[in-house]
Nucleic acid binder design. Structure first.
Lengths: 349, 349
DNA sequence: GACCGGATGGCAACCGGTTGACATCAACAC
DNA sequence: GTGTTGATGTCAACCGGTTGCCATCCGGTC
């Protein structure tokens, strides 16, 4: 399994000709393979990259030589003339947000299957940081996935000009994107709440720049009145546990009996703050989260939530990016209401 | 997504851009900058990379030209002659394990500060997948961080031969590593349990190949007897919620009154399974987790656990890797016992 | 005025692949 | 025998930077 030929000490001086910055040994190149197989480097390149261009015997011989020497192509060197790096970038807003766990995994798996490696960056919920992250990875990658970007349409369009781009949970004209259809899950949640006597619900909103936040609110605005329910938007300071906690005052002031939150973090934050102040969930207040992150089922009561297939979303984004799936053909993933114990009958008033 | 740029003949523009293989515009090169500034490409390279080698006036002029054209160095092209890619790799065992999210963030931040980008891969708790992941990213990176690797010492040593390597929570002779000192947190947890009358505790162990699992167990073996406490190892099938749930039978059979788990996932799994079968935590069973992941404080009762400074660990690994910190000088991060509600007085027997 | 040495910028050879164009050669038809 | 053709392998020119070495120019000194 050793990638280094046994006589390397004999040729130590020669191998040492190009020590890398870290003082490691230089890798085997196609020139080494070519010499070993008695052909020219270009022939090696073709034997390895363009099957069928030459006689099967020659091809075989070269492949054997390559295997014997433990040759591995140098992605950098390959990228230079071809312009293709076989690397894909994924930029998320916040690494520590559990929402992204599955998304990152889905993307990484799909990339791996396609023979690509992933570079990852974080935009920290800020447009500027996001822009920097994009600029940093851009020259390195064949394509880029932005999850719930905070940049405006114009900036995204400019990026798409120079780089293939796929957005997750964001729609911008002429840019490919994969989105999840929130209607199914949301209507199921509304039906569930109405069946339990909730006539007036609050929406704990997410970041103002978030397209998916606007989308979720929009669907609620359509669907709640259709069911004879009132719905109000309640601002949160940030899409985190703290943001949920801070919203309790406004929730109580709003006088709603049930809430749908922009995400599970907000929902959990609110849940715990409500309990801390002596409220009973779901007795006094029903709470529905969004995403079904790790942790949503750990709370007591378990958080009812609208599950988003995050892994599938990440995977789909990569498939669209590498052209395996036509963006128009890509069917939005479905959401699903997961009933746990944080929702129940509305308190008699 | 048309692959052809429409205006390729508008080369008279300020930034003349040629179409590339992917149909995107080619980036500005040092040749463009050189022409624009009226100097040779090598001079541009030096002006941008080796300050002080030339007159300040010339340097300024070239920098201005570069800025005006929006020049950005091509990392691939730079990597070829120098052998330095300014990219670092991080390989974790499982993306969806919340343990890693702070670690990834810490690493990514440290890398960003050092002007490096991160590539990320997952080894799925298997030595073979880990090996593949290493092979894939290796030619791409200047250095590699392996978090809790499952490969054996020999394989790791072989990797370190060709690539700078830093391990997290694993010690192998002659390979740099950053580890966390579990003794502080563990002894605090033991003291806490003993003070509550627990004389016999169980250790819910982690993966057999995990160095840090062995380490945690070893410290328990040393410290528990020293306090007059008995301690037994209780196997788990996997370091996940399911692994914790499955262990309940063995826990009951062992007749211990308190448990320390290899990680929080196992602890939470056990906690919930115990509750599901009617046990009271901490009334019948005290449980201590490990790591303090997101979610540990969400359970009811909140999980007492031994906090590991994950973010600092990831950051430290990168600092060691890029040589900012001498591995010998690096002081192990401290762990800390976080008392919540899953631990309490031992039941009278 | 001739000489000298440091500062400055350019030439050209890489790094490790890819690829269009071409040389070579055997087989085959005429 | 010659001409044609297709299959096969090589040559050499890139891709976009970096860097050792050399040419030039400048001011200053004897």
């Amino acid at each position: 399994m050793g990638p280094v030929s046994a006589d390397s000490d004999k040729a130590a001086k020669k191998t040492d000709k190009r020590p890398t910055a870290t003082g490691r040994r230089a890798a085997v190149t196609i020139y080494d393979v070519a010499r070993h197989a008695g052909v020219s480097p270009s022939t090696v390149s073709r034997a390895l990259g363009k099957p069928g261009r030459m006689s099967a015997r020659m091809e075989r011989r070269i492949q054997d030589a390559a295997a014997e020497l433990g040759y591995r192509v140098n992605p950098m060197a390959r990228a230079l003339p071809t312009g293709r790096t076989h690397t894909l970038g994924l930029i998320v807003t916040d690494f520590t947000n559990p929402v992204y766990f599955d998304l990152v995994r889905g993307a990484e798996r799909a990339a791996g299957v396609a023979g690509c490696t992933m570079v990852l960056a974080e935009s920290q919920e800020s447009g500027e940081a996001e822009s920097n992250a994009v600029e940093r990875v851009r020259p390195l990658v064949d394509g880029l996935v932005l999850a719930a970007p905070r940049l405006d349409d114009e900036a995204l369009t400019a990026i798409a000009q120079d780089t293939s781009l796929v957005l997750i949970n964001r729609v911008v004209p002429d840019i490919a994107s994969v989105v999840v259809d929130v209607r199914d899950g949301l209507t199921a949640a509304l039906d569930h709440l109405r069946a339990h006597g909730h006539g007036s619900i609050g929406y704990l909103s997410g970041p103002a720049r978030s397209w998916i936040n606007a989308r979720r609110w929009e669907v609620l605005l359509e669907e709640a009145p259709r069911r004879g329910m009132h719905v109000v938007e309640i601002q949160t300071s940030e899409p985190t546990l703290a943001g949920g906690r801070d919203a309790l005052r406004r929730v109580r002031a709003a006088g709603v009996s049930a809430l749908v939150a922009y995400n599970d973090l907000i929902a959990i934050g609110l849940l715990r703050e409500a309990q801390a102040t002596g409220l009973n969930v779901p007795g006094d207040l029903s709470i529905v989260g969004f995403d079904d992150i790790f942790g949503a089922e750990l709370t007591t009561p378990g958080l009812s939530t609208i599950r988003v297939p995050l892994g599938a979303l990440g995977e789909a984004a990569i498939h669209v990016l590498i052209g395996r799936v036509n963006p128009e053909e890509h069917e939005p993933a479905k959401t699903e209401f997961v009933r746990r114990q944080s929702t129940g009958p509305a308190a008699a008033r």
